[in-house]
């Protein structure tokens, strides 16, 4: 589409002071995309490996789990699968929290400035705490 470059533009992201409400909105979209692609690929790979039989599943788990004596590992997981799974788990808690927030906003509640700000911050902090708690639980076993 032809545009006249002399025309004024409306102010965009870089001109606003960042606040919790805009951060959580952007995180909702970012974590949704991470879950769709990262979570989708991991889920399909796991299910297909499982359905393909014992040998294929063993190969899949071999990519995930660290060899004996490998320093680049976290709780038995290779470092790269650990980072991917940790990221997916954080994206899951963040997206679920902001998703619940959206369902509440959809019924018309939670638009007062301080309420909105409180729940925006609460979701971000809650997702971080839930992610750390989940991995503490997994790694403690």
């Amino acid at each position: 589409m032809a545009r006249n470059s002399n025309r004024p533009l409306s102010p965009h992201l870089q001109i606003w002071r960042w606040g919790p409400a805009m951060l959580i909105s952007i995180l909702h979209r970012a974590t949704g995309t991470i879950l769709s692609i990262g979570g989708g690929v991991m889920l399909i790979a796991w299910l297909v490996a499982l359905a393909s039989g014992q040998d294929t599943y063993a190969q899949f788990m071999d990519c995930m789990l660290a060899d004996e004596g490998n320093a680049l590992q976290v709780g038995g997981l290779n470092i790269i699968p650990f980072i991917i799974l940790f990221g997916i788990s954080w994206a899951f808690f963040q997206h679920m929290g902001s998703g619940i927030r959206h369902l509440v906003l959809d019924i018309g509640a939670g638009y007062e400035l301080h309420t909105n700000r409180f729940w925006s911050i609460a979701v971000i902090v809650g997702a971080a705490v839930a992610t750390i708690a989940l991995w503490a639980l997994i790694l403690a076993r």
Partner: peptide, 12 residues
Amino acid sequence: AATLAVISILKI
């Protein structure tokens, strides 16, 4: 992708 997942689950 979803069909791949469904067939895998059904097979298992």
